[in-house]
Design a protein around this nucleic acid. Structure first.
Lengths: 218, 218
DNA sequence: TAGTCTCACTTCGTATACGAAATCCGAAGG
DNA sequence: CCTTCGGATTTCGTATACGAAGTGAGACTA
């Protein structure tokens, strides 16, 4: 076999997907706005087919909402839902933390998580960068739980939170320079202790802090 | 506004989706089999476009696996993954149980769950019927947790388990007649007690029993 | 025999075309 | 002025057509 090489170039549907997400994050498309396949297709210079794929993917992820023959709408996020998102994260990431804490090769796993924390510390300090660094740390913990379904649920949750990010409510402005390292230190220590229930509760507390900050910043 | 009436008839894509799932569940299409858009489209008498939608949805849900230009494959399930599925359910449904147990209107919620149990008790005793009744009870608990994201994760997990069902390993044969009511009684009692942590642990134990039975029946 | 090369074929992604259903909007009527 | 009505328009779902990329089998060579 001659090296598939598999450059795996993103399809037009992927590009359309990314373009729409970026447009929402950058505010080019506002929450609540109506968006229409034909218009997006034309503005991207491609046909409606791949745009259609992207729309359905985004609808499935919760960023878009189909409204019959009146096009799609960028879904607005109710405050209730933000609370629910944090609660759901507690369920998944809390359990993931307990799984990591009960692993045999606990030390190696924690080391890999620490490496991700290190990458997210320093460098770009924009809101977006910090958002992504935080996500990376949390994802790393779920990855170390070594459970595909848990990870899929995590990704689904964070995919859904794109709209919330656009809502401009996540990690607003008042973040210290090394939040990533600082805020996750107690959490990681708790996981490293090897006590599953303590790790779970630490994760729940950690997420709860993020939620409170989020709410209070409105 | 004049009653949208909205019969909401399923699209051809929906029908294709259902047809493929049914074919896998009924064994018409075996796990590991290759399936091709054109063939499915022809056998359903529709064009490739809606079939394509169904394929991507099924790929996203984990039932199909894209294999480049060689078509799609009905994904086979490794034993590891079954374990992971049960673990992920513990995370989500366990937390959901604790949320229900901590609700103000606990009694009403438990009553609604009991109603679902009642529906699933008696009647059709086929493997499939029991599988669905069990799913309905578990879903009802998550519904009562009143959290859209948790419910979406639950649905994602159980959607993924279609392949496992097809694998013929879920609820094999040795089920008593009123399993649904019997096996869930302690769980519901624990939720009704109003102790969130007890409810969570009861759910985890309950799912663990299902997992053990599942594994031992191979 | 084993390996390599070529070429027709398969399969999907994308483009384009068509139709159905609902919406929008202006005109008619009260 | 408000409501009702009807047709042009919008918008999506589906069908069909085309092209690119990879596959597979058979022929050819060593």
């Amino acid at each position: 076999m001659l090296l598939p090489l598999d450059t795996n170039q993103p399809s037009l549907a992927d590009q359309a997907y990314e373009a729409i997400v970026a447009a929402v994050i950058n505010g080019v498309i506002g929450l609540g706005d109506r968006i229409v396949m034909d218009q997006i297709a034309e503005s991207l210079g491609i046909s409606r087919t791949p745009v259609r794929d992207a729309f359905h993917r985004l609808e499935n992820e919760g960023l878009l909402l189909a409204t019959g023959r009146r096009g799609f709408v960028v879904r607005e996020v109710e405050d209730d839902e933000v609370v629910e998102l944090y609660e759901a994260r507690k369920a998944i990431e809390g359990y993931a933390a307990s799984l990591v804490a009960s692993a045999d090769d606990l030390d190696e796993r924690v080391a890999r998580i620490q490496a991700v924390v290190a990458v997210g510390t320093g460098g770009d300090r924009s809101t977006k960068a910090i958002y992504l660094a935080n996500q990376a740390v949390h994802r790393a913990i779920v990855v170390e739980a070594d459970n595909r379904h848990l990870l899929a649920s995590f990704d689904g949750l964070w995919g859904a939170s794109v709209a919330h990010f656009a809502y401009g409510q996540l990690f607003p402005t008042k973040l210290a320079d090394d939040v990533i390292a600082e805020e996750h230190a107690p959490l990681l220590a708790s996981i490293a202790s090897g006590n599953p229930e303590a790790a779970r509760l630490a994760m729940i507390a950690h997420i709860g802090e993020g939620a409170e900050q989020h709410i209070s910043d409105q």
